[in-house]
Design a protein around this nucleic acid. Structure first.
Length: 423
RNA sequence: GGAGAGAUGGCAGAGUGGUCGAAUGCGGCGGUCUUGAAAACCGUUGACCUUCACGGGUCCGGGGGUUCGAAUCCCUCUCUCUCCGCCA
């Protein structure tokens, strides 16, 4: 969430920039500023009374010690009024703070100046692209290939769990495992430390990265224990740094993690969700960085380049999109999406989203760092990206690499899966 | 699931209801000594809110209560640990 200081100091800028995200912040910002000012004055008042109270209490103790019971009792009487006033003020302050909090969490992150205005994915801007779009004849979509070569059993998943929970089998399962290992090895080689996080998180973690309180509908909620299945490893991995104060020289922190991801995605239907295009459970390797505020955009580029190297090594046709204000997530300041071309479906599939959240998450997480020699702490920047999400990558590999008798495996994966062709 | 114990500063660990933001040790930082280092010694060492600043306030797991005054007493919630049972 935005800091109160950001809002107080740059009111007009906040309003203007949120317009890019199609968010009208005028009223809410005014309310926030008014409440914040009220909070400050109320607190000053309460603090002064409390200071008075503390002084009195101390003197009462002293008086009793000296045996001046009468004076002490006299002083006691004067505390009653103070106590009442303080109680009123702190009650007031509590409600102000609750109200303030409720308002502030509604504000999305400010988009970076380079974010184009726009309403939907149609307004995203292509940054660059690479690879060759395959010229296929009589190409089968991946769900038919998956069936033909016995790689993925969607119906079996329905039997076991429900739609959107496919069962990977044989070469399909091995290919999946190969992709995970390949992505992790690439990330490790690029300097990321691997972690294996829990697949369920508590409420605090959900709030820290911004899934809660608003988007609980996206996560599976285990009500018996009040835990949430993670929609992405970003949640547990970023929350590693919740309530942490790092040394400036520890930055940037780099982590990568493989995890299964769970998304409810209620209300989806149609060809968009056919096959592997959209699942309730899928696998993903995620990269996360905690960066110095002055360097976070360099870090973002570095992460984008890393993801680019992955799709290039897999030999997939790719493009990078700069998301417009309307297509960006609530918490992001700047997001680049990676899409790969799916030869049989003849459409682009989103396989990665790389974002800089600046201080939006760290403010919720209380993730700070201290510059060497400085006394004050400041909020760090957090970034993350998929590197990569597996299902659509698998879909593109299957579709693009199909030939008459089978499917060719990208060279980089062969050492990982142990076969070079599915036939 | 059953029984018990506990939650205090980066860590370990004290704390009779009244100068306790909190002893002590370790760690960290600065210094003395040293060619340098170690050891020893001296000093220093939490976060947050508010203020231009001085200062003031809050925080001893969370919430509530008793009291002029609570880390210390009461209630409640959460979490952690140990033992037993079950189990990959």
């Amino acid at each position: 969430m935005l800091t109160l200081k950001q809002i107080q100091d740059n009111k007009q800028e906040v309003i203007e920039r949120l317009k890019i995200k199609n968010f009208d912040a005028v009223n809410i910002v005014d309310q926030i500023i008014e409440l914040d000012n009220k909070r400050k004055s109320t607190q000053t008042e309460a603090d002064n009374l409390q200071a008075e109270m503390n002084r009195l209490s101390k003197s009462i103790g002293q008086l009793f010690k000296e045996g001046k019971a009468e004076e002490a009792n006299q002083a006691k009487e004067t505390t009653a009024g103070l106590k009442e006033q303080i109680k009123n003020l702190t009650t007031q302050q509590d409600s102000i703070e609750t109200e303030l909090q409720n308002l502030v969490v509604q504000l999305p992150n400010l988009p970076h100046p380079s974010v184009p205005a726009g309403k939907s994915a149609d307004d995203n801007i292509k940054v660059r692209e690479g690879g060759l779009i395959p010229q296929l004849t009589e190409a089968l979509p991946h769900w038919e290939l998956a069936k033909k070569f016995n790689l993925i059993d969607f119906e079996l998943g329905v039997k076991l769990t429900g739609a959107g929970f496919p069962v990977y089998k044989g070469h399909g399962a091995r290919l999946q495992r190969a992709l995970i290992a390949f992505f992790l090895d690439e990330a490790i080689a690029a300097g990321y430390e691997e972690v294996m996080p829990p697949l369920m998180v508590n409420e605090d973690s959900g709030f820290g990265t911004g899934q809660l309180p608003d988007k609980e509908g996206q996560m599976y909620h285990v009500t018996a224990d009040n835990l949430y299945l993670i929609p992405t490893a970003e949640v547990p991995v970023t929350n590693i740094y919740r309530d942490v104060i790092l040394d400036g020289n520890q930055l940037p922190v780099r982590n990568c993690a493989y995890s299964a991801c769970f998304r409810r995605e209620a209300g989806s239907y149609g060809k968009d969700v056919r096959g592997l295009n959209r699942l309730h459970q899928f696998d993903k390797v995620e990269i996360v960085q905690v960066a110095h505020p002055e360097k976070s955009y360099v870090v973002l580029d570095e992460m984008v380049n890393h993801v680019q190297s992955l799709v290039e090594k897999l030999g997939l046709p790719w493009r990078i999109m700069r998301l417009c204000g309307g297509d960006m997530s609530f918490a992001s300041a700047l997001t680049f999406d990676f899409e790969v071309y799916s030869g049989a479906q003849e459409r682009w599939l989103e396989v990665s989203s790389v974002s800089n959240f600046e201080t939006f998450q760290s403010n919720r997480l209380k993730l700070r760092f201290r510059e060497e020699g400085e006394k004050k702490t400041q909020l760090a920047h957090t970034l993350n990206g998929s590197a990569l999400a597996l299902p659509r990558i698998l879909a593109a590999i299957l579709e693009n690499n199909q030939f008459e008798g089978g499917i060719k495996i990208p060279d980089v994966l062969v050492p990982y899966c142990g076969f070079d062709v599915i036939a």
